[in-house]
Computed example of a mutant assay.
Amino acid sequence: MDLYEYQAREIFQQYGIAVPDAETADTAREARAAAERLGGRVIVKAQVKTGGRGKAGGVKLAADPPAAELTARQILGMDIKGHQVHKVMLARPAAIDAEYYISYVLDRAAGHFLAIASAEGGMDIEEVAATRPQAVARIPVDPRAGVSETTAAEIAAAAGLPPATAPVLHRLWRALTDEDALLVEVNPLVRTTGGDILALDGKVTLDDNARFRQARWGDRAGAHDDPLEAAAAAKGLNYVRLDGEVGIIGNGAGLVMSTLDVVAGCGARPANFLDIGGGASAQVMADALATVLDDPGVRSVLVNVFGGITACDSVADGIVTALDTVRLTKPLVVRLDGNNAARGRAILDARAHPLVQQATTMDAAARRAAVLATDVTAV
């Protein structure tokens, strides 16, 4: 479960990580009152569980309480990557001298955590990581050994961070382990002109498997802020919305994750993760297609199924029946492999839907779906 920034801030404070004075508001009038209490000049920040708020206009400086009220009115109700803003956080601005990036994240494949840190934090940290990977330190952390004060100092030195950031790295690790988190991130961690170290923004992802140990988040653990994710959950679908244009449906989490990677390698962005699991009945396929097609950002859909216990002809029957109940408005690329794949392809050929195409390999299907999503002339 992802936490909102203001909730991550609560955790940071609990573990002795300094943050600017801040308050939350659900209305523009509340934002004005909060700005008055905070001294007038504030940063107004949309509270949504997605990145890119600043570039989307969800983070703005307000010079005084009336401006804070007007800014909050503009931000509240905004749609940021499919997430509607229902709450804003108002924070006292900091005089920034330098920005850094620090995080701990679980590396499932390697079986340990990674400390990721850089002396170049801020909104463009992804670009820094992509264009100058040497500027980002990635240090494996054995969860049994953890991060001592000495280890924290070593991480800071490896990333070129000042020694004053080491206590934050140590406390952030304590927060990760005590709160059963999969990710804790501070971006940016700043040094102010007065020499203070402050966490200006934060992200925390908690492990849903540890809900029984984290009772204070229990009532919020099952909430879905994205309406498509909420609708999919109500239908029993394992759906996560992403920021892309190729809708993806597959059977099995591993296959779906691989499909996301292959689509990205073909120059397109996955629009979602949707795992239909072992069942591909007509109703499941109809629900899956309807969910993916409800995303206005989707420009093509890729169904990638490997037939095992559920045979490919049953999947094809489900797709054909679903096409009779769901209005297909975007091109659909289907790759069937495994048990009864030839029979499944024949069923789709016989249906001959003008927007349905087939491919025999995952690479070919991903390439075709990527082309259809990025080149309007290819449809």
Results as ranks from 00 to 15, higher is better:
256 V>E: 02
272 N>Q: 07
246 V>L: 05
247 G>A: 10
249 I>Y: 01
267 G>N: 06
290 A>C: 08
310 T>W: 00
286 A>C: 07
280 A>F: 02
259 T>S: 13
244 G>Y: 01
286 A>P: 09
294 D>M: 14
295 D>I: 15
244 G>M: 05
279 G>S: 08
272 N>M: 06
317 D>K: 09
291 T>H: 01
266 C>A: 11
254 G>P: 12
300 S>N: 10
277 G>K: 05
285 M>V: 14
257 M>P: 15
260 L>G: 13
254 G>R: 09
309 I>T: 12
284 V>I: 15
257 M>Q: 09
255 L>W: 05
296 P>F: 01
260 L>S: 11
246 V>Y: 01
272 N>I: 13
316 A>P: 07
305 V>C: 03
292 V>R: 04
251 N>L: 12
281 S>W: 00
311 A>D: 08
253 A>R: 09
281 S>V: 10
288 A>Q: 04
287 D>H: 06
298 V>A: 06
297 G>Q: 14
303 V>Y: 00
268 A>Y: 01
303 V>Q: 01
256 V>G: 08
273 F>Q: 04
269 R>G: 07
312 C>P: 08
296 P>D: 08
307 G>M: 04
268 A>H: 03
308 G>R: 05
280 A>C: 10
300 S>L: 07
256 V>I: 11
249 I>R: 03
272 N>F: 03
266 C>K: 07
258 S>D: 05
259 T>C: 07
269 R>A: 15
304 N>I: 14
267 G>K: 05
298 V>W: 01
276 I>V: 15
249 I>M: 11
304 N>P: 14
245 E>M: 05
277 G>C: 08
